[in-house]
Design a protein around this nucleic acid. Structure first.
Length: 598
RNA sequence: GCGAGCGUAGCACAAUGGAUAGUGUAGUGGCCUCCGAAGCCAUCGAUCCGGGUUCGACUCCCGGCGCUCGCACCA
């Protein structure tokens, strides 16, 4: 994949230019005969535009550690770089010893010509996870309950991660790990059998199930005979009682149907819905295997089966409760069984679980346990990642809770987003047909909600506010979608398709400051993909796309595209086409739908 | 009590140990006989406190302060 960079002559243009520079500088260190050249890491990074396209920082540390002059080392390295590379970049040594690389216009043009389609971008990016299988566990709501704003982040972030992994070469398995088993079903069945209203179920099943759960919960206080009855319902369910199993299945079905309506709006389609119930008969093997290793990984403590991690400062005393004292399974039991299933059945190379940060301890203990267990049994250990995010909180700064009574439902949030977007479309573009305005409002409104969640990295909590989540100005989805729509508009006016490459042959290298700025930004897409994919943090891609849209807007404002001069026009149309390609590809990776008009 | 995450302009965020800490929004001042003003240009304004490591610290380490959360049978 890597290989030497060649914009001229050999006609090979690499996708990830930073990676090529890294390799070239490493080779140059050997070529230049530097002492301990093998220990030299160039540390090539994308640079601030004012400094160039890429910068190598590695000479500073390398030189200092060996009491050499960093600038002199940098000079030697640059002199040892291949001629082809030196003809593609302006190379300067700056400050204490940074090596700055700025792509020359001809090299920019060569890169833009080479990566002209989504398939070509994908082929370039696919090396990162080629041949790997990744299971992504996200959304994972509890059945019989409404999805509320607290469920949004896992769904949106999880889907973006799936798409990023798939684009960078992985086979991705989307698994919705439903909370469809456990003590709450005893109370729900108790309530259902007494107070279920068939008409209400037909109208809005989840609404009715929530009402029945609350009734069941209130009717079964701690220590009451009613609670004992609810427990018997649960035991009956777990022992395969026909009536309760049928009821449970119905609850799962209507819940899933309701969830799917939300998923459809967010562009999410799961491959599997293997909830906790699926692992009910798979926990015995977990208990057995954790006990039969030498030394045993799990032990009995206070009647429960627990795992301690003596090497860990906290988990040497804080137990991981794997089986309850009454013999019942819990969250840890099913999660252990889940990890094994994913490793064995899906042959996962990587497992990603997307939940809020409050479950951090649980997953840290889970992963520690899985690694020991798999190692002891000689199972292959997949990469294990807990992707965390901060909780969405209410005005009081406390986490939003389902029982608080004033939850904001996901459906209502999405409806509100679409309504707000519709009001703006109607105002800005009253001439569009009603149906198209509705369609635009759907993409803009839902996209704004998705983007608001994806654009920030912070795992700190944020206070829920309609205005913040539904903002349509500034660094938001509408800004990016607007740039896309304007580019489509130009191609409509020009009477050619953005993918029509025929006219591109005339295009020359970028010349004006805004053309060059835009072209340089386009070549950074590989690095944004790499960064977002490696760290499982989609906000790096958001940041890149926002900057790209900004550069495009400046270009669009400064340089007219549809001019008489055929060469100039071709040059600018090429930039428009590649910007469109990159923005659309990137936005689709985030799970957004793009528009040709808005 | 033990532990984890977070603390950056009025507000909301960014910065993969690098150069003069970037953006949005709010404020101020400009730009539509010119491919879409949901836009562009300019300007104002910030790293919680104290040490340390480093050529270089918002970032890493130590000690405080503040907020949120987790710590035995919920998920």
């Amino acid at each position: 994949m890597a290989g030497r960079i060649r914009f001229s002559g050999a006609m090979h243009v690499s996708f990830n230019l930073a990676a090529d520079l890294e390799a070239a500088l490493k080779a140059a260190a050997v070529q230049a005969g530097l002492a301990e050249a093998a220990a030299f890491t160039p540390e090539v990074r994308t640079a601030e535009p004012k400094h160039g396209d890429f910068q190598a920082n590695g000479t500073l540390g390398f030189a200092k550690a060996r009491k050499l002059n960093p600038r002199a080392v940098a000079e030697q390295l640059v002199a040892a770089l291949p001629v082809s590379l030196r003809s593609d970049y302006e190379i300067t040594i700056a400050g204490p010893g940074f090596i700055n690389f700025t792509l020359k216009p001809a090299a920019l043009l060569a890169w833009l010509r080479t990566f002209a389609t989504a398939a070509q971008l994908r082929a370039g990016a696919a090396a990162a996870h080629a041949g790997q299988t990744w299971v992504v566990d996200y959304s994972s709501p509890n059945t019989a309950k409404q999805m509320h704003v607290g469920h949004l982040r896992s769904a949106v972030i999880g889907e973006a991660i799936c798409r990023l992994l798939a684009f960078t070469g992985a086979r991705v398995i989307r698994d919705n790990h439903l909370g469809d088993w456990g003590t709450q079903f005893g109370k729900l069945i108790y309530g259902y059998k007494r107070w279920a209203d068939p008409a209400a179920i037909a109208a809005d099943a989840i609404e009715e199930l929530e009402r029945l759960y609350k009734l069941g919960h209130n009717a079964t206080p701690d220590g009451s005979p009613e609670l004992e009855e609810a427990r018997r319902e649960l035991v009956a369910l777990q022992n395969g009682d026909a009536e309760n199993v049928a009821l449970w299945k119905k609850i799962s079905e209507v819940s899933l149907a309701a969830f799917q309506q939300i998923y459809d709006r967010l562009g999410i389609k799961f491959d599997h819905h293997l909830g906790e119930s699926f692992y009910n008969d798979k926990v015995e093997r977990v208990y057995r295997e954790l006990k039969e290793t030498t030394p045993p990984i799990a032990e009995i403590s206070e009647g429960a089966l627990v795992v301690f991690h003596p090497e860990h400062p906290r988990f040497k005393t804080q137990p991981f409760l794997v089986r309850k004292a009454d013999g019942a399974s819990n969250y840890a039991s099913t999660d252990l069984a889940t990890a094994l299933y994913r490793a064995e059945h899906f042959k996962a190379d990587g497992i990603v679980v997307v939940t809020d940060f409050r479950q951090g301890d649980h997953f840290e203990q889970l992963f520690l346990t899985v690694r020991k267990w798999f190692a002891a049994k000689s199972y292959r250990v997949p990469e294990l990642h807990h992707v965390t995010f901060g909780a969405v909180t209410g005005e009081d700064g406390k986490a939003l809770k389902t029982r608080s009574g004033d939850v904001i439902r996901l459906k209502a949030l999405l409806d509100e987003a679409v309504d707000r977007a519709f009001a703006i479309v109607a105002e800005k573009n009253p001439d569009l047909p009603e149906a198209e305005r509705r369609e635009i409002a759907r993409s803009v409104g839902i996209g704004a909600v998705q983007y608001a969640d994806l654009a920030q990295n912070r795992s700190s909590n944020y206070v829920f506010s309609w205005d913040k989540m539904l903002a349509l100005d500034g660094n938001t989805a509408p800004y990016l979608l607007y740039a896309v729509a304007r580019i489509h508009s130009i191609f409509r006016k020009a009477g050619i398709a953005p993918t029509d490459a025929a006219g591109e042959a005339l295009a020359t290298a970028p010349e004006t400051p805004t053309e060059i700025m835009l072209a340089r930004r386009l070549t950074k897409f590989p690095d944004a993909l790499r960064l977002a994919g490696e760290t499982l943090r989609p906000h790096f891609l958001c940041l890149y796309l926002f900057e790209l849209a900004g550069d495009y807007s400046s270009f669009n404002n400064a340089d007219k595209v549809l001019v008489e001069d055929a060469v100039l026009r071709a040059r600018r149309l090429l930039l428009c086409a590649r910007t469109l390609l990159t923005l659309e590809t990137g936005l689709h990776l985030l799970g957004l739908r793009t528009l040709t008009r808005m």
